[in-house]
Structure formats: C-alpha cells, structure tokens
Computed example of a mutant assay.
Amino acid sequence: MARESSGRGPLYRLYARRLRRRIDVAKAPHHVAMMIDGNRRWARQLGFDSAAAGHRAGAAKMREFLGWCDDLGIGVVSLYLLSADNLLKRDSKEIRDLIEIIAELADSLAEHGEWRVQHVGRADILTPELSRVLAEAQERTSGHTGLHVNLAVGYGGRNEIVDAVRSIIGKHDASGGTLEDLAEQLTPEMIGEHLYTGGQPDPDLVIRTSGEQRLSDFLLWQSAHSEFYFVEALGPDLREVDFLRAIRDFADRDRRFGR
C-alpha cells in the first residue's frame, strides 16, 4: 500500500492515466503558479542534518512538475523559489545551499531545449553568481517557444508593485510629463505592464503544498482573480495525481473574475 501511495505502483499509474483522460484540456489553466512549501519539514522528518536535502528534493520535484504542466499544454508556470524576505531572515548556511540549488535548477532548465526561462525578482539583492546564472538562463532560452517558466527568486510581491510604480514615474518624468498628467493616466493595466511579468497572462491557478494556506507575498497583483488550490503533501512528496486533481478541480469551478 505504501508503494501505491508513493506514486510508483501499477495502481497509481492506472489512476493517474484515468485522471489525465478525464481532464478537459480546453478548460485547463494557461498559467499555473506554484508555491512549493515544506522542503525543510520533509528533510527534518526524514532525519537529514540540514534543510539542503529537502531543498534539493524540492528542486527535483519542480523539474518533474514542469514536465506534468508541459504534458497538459499549460503555457506559463511560475515557481516561487526564494523570497526577498527569506534572503534576510533565514540562516545564512541554508541560504547559501539554497542559492546553489536554485542555480543548478536554472541551469538545468535552460538545457531543456524548448522551455523559456525568465527570472522574476530583484537581481540586485542576489549573489553575483546566482544573478549571473539566472541572467544567462534567460538569455540562452529567450528564443524558445515552449513552456514559459518564471523563476521567482529574490521576489516579493509588494516590492514588485513598488518597482512597477517607480518605473512608470521614471518613464513619465523622462518624457517631461507632470504628476497631474500621470495621476490622470494611471490605470491598473499600466501598472500590470510594468510588473516583472509584464506582457504575460495572470495566473489562473495558484497551487501551494504542505497544507499552508497563505500567499506569502507571491504574485499579489497578478493573483487578484486567481483560483487557489492547497495540497497537504510536502513539496518533495507532491505526486502527479495531486497535480491532476488540482487541474480537475480548477476545470470544475465557475470563475467569476470579481463579478
């Protein structure tokens, strides 16, 4: 029974195929945002000495997760990997390990051949090495037309909105406009265009693992009308059937977009 629940046995594979067949691809989300949580708890429960084992397992799961999304034809996936707050609040050894793991993940995703990688977040608060790896992954994949993968690293939703407003003010000032003119012209659409994800569709579905039910400063502006789905499994334990259930649940919802 443990083998089946872990996602490796024949009954599990049969159930996953059945779920996949029942999903109406036309009703699947176009943009999925993933908040992978519980890596540290996973490592602690399994007796590892540091959280690095959990973060490494979580990164491996995210590569697998992207494959599931790609198989369903989902166009954009945003992964919340490292918040701006965590750079300041967490133990420095854990952050150093996590930075190395994220760099390895970004580099491996850039090797896929079809996926496009984009860094969303503040490059100036990252280590020079991680900032370089993320920039190179983005540059190497800029011409790819497959799954668009946003890596939220050094990211904070409130900071993103502030940066967007600063960008708008800076461009308006450079053109010689007045504050009165800007006040009249400012719209939600204008702010959206200046976010880190400018030009992309907002996330239709936000998934969070480990049973936690909060946004944690992730895509605050973009998720105004998103659907949310919370999974009890810790990040590294996420199974494809958990993902498929989330997609099935999303397809069954009546989205009102604030109406």
Rank of each mutant, 00 (worst) to 15 (best):
residue 1 M to D: 11
residue 2 A to H: 08
residue 3 R to C: 09
residue 8 R to N: 14
residue 9 G to S: 14
residue 10 P to F: 11
residue 15 Y to E: 15
residue 18 R to H: 14
residue 19 L to Y: 10
residue 23 I to Q: 04
residue 23 I to E: 04
residue 23 I to W: 02
residue 24 D to M: 10
residue 26 A to N: 14
residue 29 P to D: 14
residue 31 H to N: 03
residue 32 V to Y: 04
residue 36 I to E: 05
residue 36 I to Q: 09
residue 37 D to S: 04
residue 38 G to W: 00
residue 38 G to F: 00
residue 39 N to L: 12
residue 40 R to F: 00
residue 46 L to K: 06
residue 47 G to Y: 02
residue 52 A to V: 01
residue 53 A to I: 00
residue 56 R to W: 09
residue 58 G to K: 06
residue 60 A to C: 13
residue 61 K to G: 12
residue 66 L to V: 09
residue 67 G to S: 13
residue 71 D to I: 01
residue 71 D to H: 03
residue 71 D to Q: 03
residue 73 G to C: 01
residue 77 V to I: 12
residue 86 N to C: 03
residue 89 K to R: 13
residue 102 I to P: 11
residue 105 L to D: 09
residue 106 A to K: 00
residue 107 D to Q: 12
residue 107 D to H: 07
residue 108 S to H: 10
residue 109 L to F: 08
residue 111 E to C: 10
residue 119 H to N: 03
residue 120 V to F: 05
residue 120 V to K: 01
residue 122 R to W: 11
residue 123 A to N: 13
residue 127 T to W: 05
residue 128 P to G: 11
residue 128 P to Q: 12
residue 133 V to R: 04
residue 134 L to Q: 07
residue 134 L to V: 07
residue 140 R to K: 10
residue 142 S to R: 07
residue 143 G to Q: 05
residue 145 T to M: 05
residue 146 G to M: 05
residue 146 G to F: 01
residue 150 N to D: 14
residue 150 N to Q: 13
residue 151 L to R: 09
residue 152 A to R: 01
residue 158 R to Y: 04
residue 160 E to M: 02
residue 161 I to S: 09
residue 164 A to K: 05
residue 165 V to F: 08
residue 166 R to F: 07
residue 167 S to L: 03
residue 168 I to K: 03
residue 168 I to L: 03
residue 168 I to C: 06
residue 170 G to W: 08
residue 171 K to Q: 15
residue 172 H to G: 11
residue 176 G to E: 15
residue 177 G to N: 07
residue 177 G to D: 09
residue 179 L to C: 14
residue 180 E to L: 11
residue 182 L to W: 02
residue 182 L to E: 06
residue 182 L to S: 04
residue 182 L to Q: 04
residue 183 A to Y: 07
residue 184 E to P: 04
residue 184 E to H: 13
residue 185 Q to C: 07
residue 188 P to C: 09
residue 189 E to I: 08
residue 190 M to P: 00
residue 191 I to N: 04
residue 193 E to S: 10
residue 193 E to G: 13
residue 197 T to E: 01
residue 198 G to Y: 03
residue 198 G to P: 04
residue 202 D to T: 11
residue 205 L to R: 10
residue 206 V to Q: 05
residue 213 Q to H: 07
residue 213 Q to R: 07
residue 214 R to K: 08
residue 216 S to Q: 01
residue 217 D to A: 02
residue 217 D to E: 02
residue 217 D to V: 02
residue 218 F to Y: 10
residue 219 L to I: 13
residue 220 L to I: 15
residue 220 L to F: 06
residue 222 Q to G: 11
residue 223 S to D: 12
residue 225 H to S: 15
residue 226 S to M: 08
residue 226 S to L: 09
residue 231 V to A: 09
residue 233 A to C: 06
residue 235 G to C: 14
residue 236 P to I: 02
residue 238 L to Y: 08
residue 239 R to E: 15
residue 243 F to T: 14
residue 249 D to Y: 11
residue 252 D to F: 06
residue 257 F to D: 15
residue 258 G to A: 12
residue 259 R to L: 12
residue 259 R to P: 10
residue 259 R to G: 14
